[in-house]
Write a protein that binds this DNA or RNA. Sequence first.
RNA 1: GGGCGUGUAGCCUAGCCUGGAUAGGGCACCGGGUUCCUAACCCGGGGGCCGGGGGUUCGAAUCCCCCCACGCCCGCCA
Length: 603
Amino acid sequence: MSSPSSGAGGPFWDPWEPLRQHVASELARRLASAGAPETVEALLRQLEVASVGVADFGVPVHRAAQAAGVPAERLAERLADGFPLTGGLARVTADGPYVNFHADAPTLVRTTLELVFARAGAYGHAPARTESVCVEHTSANTTGPFHVGRVRNGIIGDTYARTLRAAGFPVVTQYYVDDMGRQSAMITWIWSRPLDRWPAEVREGSALPGAERPASEKPDAWYGRPYRFVSERVKNDPGTAASVGELVRELESGRAPPAHRRLATEILDGMLASLARLSIRFDEFVWESSFVADGSVDRVIDRLRRAPHAQVEENGALTVDAGGYGLPQEKARIVVTRGDGTSLYVTRDIAYHLAKFARFARAVDVLGQDHRLHARTLSALLAELGEERRPEFVIYQDITVPEGGRMSTRQGKAVYLDDLLDEATERARAEVLQRREDLPAEEVDGIAAQVAAGAVRFHILRIAPDKPVKFQWEEALAFDGRSGPFLQYSYARASSILRKAGRERPPYPFRPGALATPEEAALVRAIAGLPGTVAYVARTGHVHTLATYAFSLAEAFNRAYQAVPVLRAEGDLRDARLALVAAARQALGNSLDLIGIARLERM
RNA sequence: GGGCGUGUAGCCUAGCCUGGAUAGGGCACCGGGUUCCUAACCCGGGGGCCGGGGGUUCGAAUCCCCCCACGCCCGCCA
């Protein structure tokens, strides 16, 4: 975590920063004089992780005690004794082999709330940086509607992009549209022929009510209908395989029929409409064919031909021996062109990534676990070309279905995003109507859609990308407990208090000492955790940590809500509590923005 | 067969990178809480050999090795 803060008093955006800096540097000094030198950086890391309930943060001194040759308990006492209580530090205690640090409560309250109010919507964000980042995510084939498995990519990618922006990076999100492969060719192949000449089983399987798309059906759903049946036929019927193959060659040579781009665009529009329901949008769309058309793929092939480990096979295919780049032995020889000299997916992807690096300092690729080897291949080829930069990969595991295996349209084992959101919206509407008879129907609809999106987005985001997600309807549709709607509800509660107090806008004057209950103290600490969480997620790509954090913040808010009356309080107690509610609402709202879940003023 | 990843209560999950204080939560279950700011909430309770075994260490859910289970990849497909 880099910081322009030079310690207490300097500019900072993390309320803990002055205290942590003070503790770390003083502790480093004391450890050095005790004969167990530690760097400030190492101590800051330890302070971050060693925190437990008994203090704000602490550090075990076993190792240092060994280095110094004294018992840990003695060293802890020596380190704690006379520790200067400045920079917001109230107390330092030696608890067995641990040194614990307790923040001065009023100071932490003041520091935190003032920072929140000063930065408002930017609370939690870091100052701007110059390194630009390209985040490529989703990039699903334009063959039909999104199923939930594919959407995990978008949820992770979009959340990471939002977090990197908050961490100060200029971010551009890109969707790489594959318009060159067999998948998209199959769509064009089937839709380029009149309906009465479709193969019987494709026509029957697709169950089209007519030749024209009804207004009620989205283009991705409509044009995607025959996909799995064409795919099946290509596997079983050599004639179909041959004509689709013919079309693929046309696409690769740049002679795509006009219908091809039109179909892809229309289907993509439908797919993007679904993603928009989850607040996922893209800055740019990059068409794979563009790298063939502008000659950059040819230039990549030329460069690879002259690369140190390149070799031309008997039939003319160009390969690169990437054994030296850590690829598994079986896959060490990467095929870069076919025997006829045409490019392959990985070759075009190289051209794409060189284009990324020409514009951006960093490139982040969000990929499913089935692309791990591709990721390593890509890196190996970039190395072979002498490019020093590498994409940073965020890899996530599949969403599986209860009967086993990953979601798959082709196997008919898929839950579609639109269906899930429709069902979730219906349930959310029922929930809203049950408790809010006063709201106009239009607002109920809006709330229901946002609650549904919040539930789905949180449900998928909450799990570490490394782990598989077992899709279960009832869990995906849960609105209570650790869920998106719980966060939205907390935000709505905070909004409601401020609304009823007539204090929806700053200023929020407060006397820090007035916020003295344990629930209020815990809430302040939760609020103070946002900047550190943003920095952590930006550094690691562990986007699910945002979900964990936001939940713990909402939880702290609800506990305080339960324990501490605000509107019924009086005088400076009421003012201070209103300020705390306003700060909690701000921190929670900013967290929701990062997660991509709508803030709801009421629900 | 090889490579990569995952395994934490009935179910779901955080913590693992960077070893440290009684392994945090949620769902479900049991018991409480609303003349009061939205009960989509809060409080209490039971439920864990952290997949198994070995190792390193003062100390292992966390690091290393072996094994087991599950997933994915190992195309001149994308």
